[in-house]
């Protein structure tokens, strides 16, 4: 027996949820599916493969005020930003839930990033299993899967006319206390199988594939935009600057990408990563070698967003396979 909720009941439960907390859910507009705050359940898209942007922006916003700077007579006062209210993200896919678990490593490492920590603590994750594996998906090669409940509070899996409901955490159970659940004999559809990507020993392989002409050749094609980093559920590099407007001063944090021209260039002009190849390689090495070294996790969840959105088809699946080949051959 499983706990079950009909599609109609799901909408009414989500509608109630949206009344008591900020509800972030997939919304379809202008032909795109993006996470956004919803006030009514009817706004929520349920028939989507995955959102164009990952949900990371709701915990690590593209633009975040760290604190405001107020000039008081004879001095300065810094007013920390605060996070208010509870939130829930509905419709998060297992790959993106893993993405948040990966983001926890840098952001919750001591000393914890205060805003991220507060948002994370106040945001419940209501996952939705994947009904299909898109061609670009490879989550099963990165330790999760289309119906992996391990990184969410509640997991819903579409079955028949409704959803099988798994309360994964205590928080999930509490949220479901008022949900119109029924006990039902439903079999979940078989989980889809994404095409595997050879991620075995990728960090070790990466060590041997560092100094190869492949990176320069790949970078020929790269146009060094920030797109891959901004759609990625894991990329977490950021920039910090002050923003002054009409006498109001704020310290801002914004997304940044290792592909942007000022990423590693220091004031005065010295650019340590001064070739296109070195710049592009940094993206893959940070994910596949440096994050495993520093945090013990690979900085990729197999969501495939960078694969679908790269303007010139720099495909991380192909890059990983190529690294396996190059890392193996230079070892022998």
């Amino acid at each position: 027996m499983s706990q079950f909720m009909s599609g109609e009941d799901l909408r009414s439960w989500l509608g109630n949820l949206a009344q008591e907390r900020t509800l972030i859910a997939p919304i379809r507009s202008d032909g795109l599916v993006l996470f956004g705050a919803v006030s009514r359940a009817e706004e929520i898209a349920l028939d989507y493969d995955n959102t164009l942007l990952s949900p990371k922006g709701h915990l690590f916003p593209a633009t975040d005020t760290l604190f405001t700077i107020e000039r008081r007579e004879g001095g300065i006062e810094l007013v920390p930003a605060s996070v208010e209210g509870e939130a829930a993200i509905f419709g998060i896919r297992p790959c993106d839930a893993l993405g948040l678990r990966v983001l926890d490593r840098p952001f919750l490492a001591e000393p914890a990033d205060a805003l991220y920590q507060q948002r994370r603590a106040r945001t419940a994750l209501i996952g939705l299993s994947c009904h299909k594996a898109s061609p670009e998906c490879f989550c099963t090669s990165l330790g999760t899967g289309p119906d992996d409940p391990s990184n969410v509070d509640i997991l819903l899996t579409g079955a028949g006319e409704g959803y099988i409901v798994q309360a994964v955490t205590e928080r999930g159970k509490a949220l479901l206390a008022t949900a119109p659940l029924v006990e039902a004999e439903v079999t979940p559809p078989p989980a889809p199988s994404p095409t595997p990507v050879p991620t075995e020993d990728i960090a070790e392989v990466a060590r041997r594939a560092f100094d190869v002409p492949y990176w320069a050749r790949l970078a020929d094609r790269c146009i060094h935009c920030n797109l891959c980093a901004y759609v990625c559920p894991v990329c977490y590099c950021f920039d910090i600057r002050d923003h002054s407007y009409m006498g109001r001063m704020e310290r801002m944090r914004t997304w940044e990408s290792c592909q942007s021209p000022g990423f590693s260039r220091i004031a005065g002009g010295y650019e340590p990563r001064d070739t296109k190849g070195a710049r592009l390689r940094q993206r893959f090495y940070h994910k596949l070698l440096y994050m495993p070294e520093q945090f013990g996790v690979i900085g990729c969840t197999g969501c495939g967003r960078c694969v679908t959105s790269c303007p010139v088809n720099i495909d991380i699946r192909e890059v990983i396979s190529e690294m396996q080949r190059l890392g193996a051959s230079s070892a022998s």
Binding site: P106, F107, P111, D113, C237, F238, I240, P272, Q282, Q294
Partner: peptide, 16 residues
């Protein structure tokens, strides 16, 4: 290049 000093912004990442 550094933005945070906390091992978070990843700007000063060189190798591992």
């Amino acid at each position: 290049k550094m933005k945070c000093g906390l091992g978070k912004c990843a700007r000063c990442n060189v190798g591992d």
